[in-house]
Write a protein that binds this DNA or RNA. Structure first.
Lengths: 196, 196
DNA sequence: CGGGGCTGACTGAATATTCAGTCACCAATG
DNA sequence: CATTGGTGACTGAATATTCAGTCAGCCCCG
């Protein structure tokens, strides 16, 4: 009987704060991700951030979860049934401005994990989840005869590393590395199809 | 007749500052990379940092170049003659504590490039250099018959993305993704050897 | 009229940056 | 040789600035 879809000011505001944080991160980078910069992207006041979150760290922890969830959505929205579709969802052919900003934000948060244990834990879970998903897809492809029998773990790790690497390179260089990388992965997977 | 190997206080000091910055970054992360933390890793005084560099940003820009040069050295030190050796140099089998710290530092600097144009420019050049190197190695392998004829650009991009992705995942998760990724790449390259 | 959502002005601590001055060393000069 | 002046490396203390976090109180809706 609880009103789930009612106008929940609190949740709406928190969601708006997440979006503001996202914009501030995307445009300014982690180095300048200040409470003030977040507030500037937010329609309401800086003080309100402290009404909804204890500290800046609190806010950022929640934001990291939010960002990771958003990334996972790229897999659900398209229904991904095969390894090729997984790759296609993560290294899409078309240039998408919004997604470019998203990758910039994601990469910067992820790099923090190199020195922050809490972040690292989150990204470890994220990495395992994606890896497991990929392993299942590969196994299903092999069973269905869409893929030659291969070392599933090794292939999953290569694909995941390639996807993450393409994202890193895309976010941190001026060259568009996505199309060529994608073509290479396609050829690689094609060569692994059932033509023993 | 100019003394090239003379004791050059200035250059020695600047090198010491680079090393101190490296240690501060590796241990504290970009978020806590303060002038004070750098000074703590440095045997001389904090003021001296400002004697040798205009601002913190100045220092960091020089540091980025230094770090990138250091990374390139991994290729020169081992003499890399084939694609396989390139991969081996970038995804080495043995666990190396020092190199782990180096990767952590490198990834954190690189992520900054997502929002800082100066950093981005540096990493664009870095990426192109590595890509060119890889292209030449692949072409040489094909000519020598060590590799089947393939789309050189596509293969180079896949390998580079995989290497960068392995580094990112290694630096930001608790799982050691290197061995499995490396095995996968080895299998991939093996399947591309001259057995048409 | 009471309480939740919200604000602007403010504060203290952290941090970057400056600066006056020390010290070792060198070169020229009487 | 002894003195003088000059210079570059360096320091400690002071200053300027940024930034997370606080607080007293407003507004509006039930």
């Amino acid at each position: 009987m609880s009103a789930d879809t009612s106008s929940d000011d609190c949740e709406d505001t928190r969601e708006a704060i997440m979006k503001a944080t996202y914009r501030a991160l995307r445009d300014n980078g982690t180095a300048d991700l200040t409470i003030q910069n977040i507030a500037d992207e937010f329609e309401k006041s800086k003080s309100l951030l402290y009404y909804h979150y204890e500290t800046k760290d609190d806010l950022l922890v929640e934001f990291l979860g939010w960002l990771i969830d958003r990334n996972a959505e790229f897999l659900d929205s398209d229904d991904v049934e095969t390894t090729v579709e997984f790759v296609e969802a993560m290294i899409p052919p078309e240039v998408d401005e919004e997604r470019a900003g998203f990758r910039a934000a994601f990469v910067q948060m992820r790099a923090e994990a190199a020195s922050d244990p809490d972040y690292r834990e989150q990204f470890t879970l994220y990495d395992r989840l994606f890896r497991e998903t990929l392993v299942e897809l590969i196994e299903r492809d092999i069973e269905a005869g869409r893929l030659r029998a291969v070392d599933v773990d090794a292939l999953a790790d290569v694909l995941l590393s390639t996807i993450d690497g393409a994202m890193l390179r895309y976010a941190t260089t001026d060259d568009d590395v996505m199309p060529t990388t994608r073509e290479g992965v396609d050829r690689l997977l094609a060569s692994l199809r059932g033509d023993e």
